[in-house]
């Protein structure tokens, strides 16, 4: 309890700063958000045409409503797990301002993490809740009954929290690597595209042929958005659910270990010039 209080005292300020930052730059966030919503609607129309062309109600195990939940939830999950860790760490290492984090009695990664918590709180209230309500109303209207289950939402929240931490540490590692490259922006886009592809954001992993699907679902990228979305959609049940949640945790631990190791290594070699 005492320890918790001290963490709260130390990092509470970072959470606050994160909220302030989000409010200051809300315009640019909503720009991206509306852009993503456009993309969701493009997908909506494509899938509508696809289902109309097949004449079936089922496409590789997904109904039209499933597909819509998948498309919107995947995009929203993308926002929930999105992190600027790569960029923060890479640019701070480059311009030397990382030293400001190192001389404070806080953990470098935790201070960035808590800063981001602030913006996540805002995203959940401003984006996640309204979109989910809209989605559930859509489901209710098309299905004629309430498909929403509280247990699934709670499981989803647990799973997406692990996803976020995983994404954070994955990005932190990318950040340490970006140290060697100058085009952090290009590198970031490349990373985003790869993650999008391997995590099933464009094509559900279930649509890939046999072996590819098996490999993809074991990779850490599937643990990012695919697992929580599948849990919410009740595609993962029983043992499969427990297995996939555990897989998420295993990957998380691996990446925390890796990033700590890399940081120790980088810390020794870091030379900050000027001031």
């Amino acid at each position: 309890m005492k320890q918790f209080k001290s963490i709260k005292r130390t990092y509470g300020a970072f959470v606050n700063a994160g909220i302030q930052d989000f409010i200051a730059y809300k315009a640019s966030f909503f720009g991206f958000f509306i852009g993503e919503i456009f993309m969701c609607f493009v997908m909506y129309f494509i899938w509508k045409a696809v289902y109309a062309s097949t004449g079936r109600t089922d496409f590789m195990g997904f109904s039209m409503i499933d597909m819509m939940v998948y498309v919107f939830l995947t995009h929203i999950s993308g926002f929930l797990i999105q992190t600027d860790a790569t960029f923060s760490i890479a640019s701070e290492i480059k311009d030397g301002s990382i030293i400001m984090r190192m001389i404070k009695p806080v953990n470098v990664d935790l201070s960035i993490l808590f800063f981001e918590f602030g913006s996540k709180i805002m995203i959940i209230t401003c984006v996640f809740v309204p979109v989910m309500v809209g989605l559930e109303i859509y489901r209710y209207i098309t299905l004629g009954y309430v498909a929403f289950k509280l247990v699934r939402l709670i499981l989803f929240m647990i799973s997406i929290s692990i996803s976020y931490l995983l994404s954070f540490y994955l990005n932190l590692i990318f950040g340490y690597l970006a140290f060697y490259l100058l085009n952090i922006w290009g590198f970031g886009v490349l990373k985003e595209e790869l993650i999008k592809f391997f995590s099933g954001a464009v094509i559900p992993i279930a649509f890939f042929p046999g072996v590819v699907r098996k490999v993809f679902s074991f990779l850490p990228f599937a643990s990012l958005t695919y697992t929580p979305v599948m849990i919410y959609m009740e595609k993962y049940n029983g043992m499969k659910l427990i297995f996939n949640l555990s897989l998420q945790i295993v990957w998380l631990l691996v990446f925390i270990g890796l990033s700590r190791g890399l940081w120790k290594w980088a810390e020794k070699r870091l030379a900050v010039q000027g001031g």
């Binding site: 490349l190 595209e193 999008k196 464009v202």
Partner: peptide
């Protein structure tokens, strides 16, 4: 890195279309 990232983005979309077309003869 820059050029590859835009290339991969496009290739992903093309794969998406291809996978859909494995199931259907035509789209609209």
């Amino acid at each position: 890195t820059g050029a590859t990232s835009f290339l991969i983005g496009q290739v992903t979309n093309i794969l998406f279309i291809t996978i859909i077309f494995n199931q259907i003869p035509s789209l609209a």
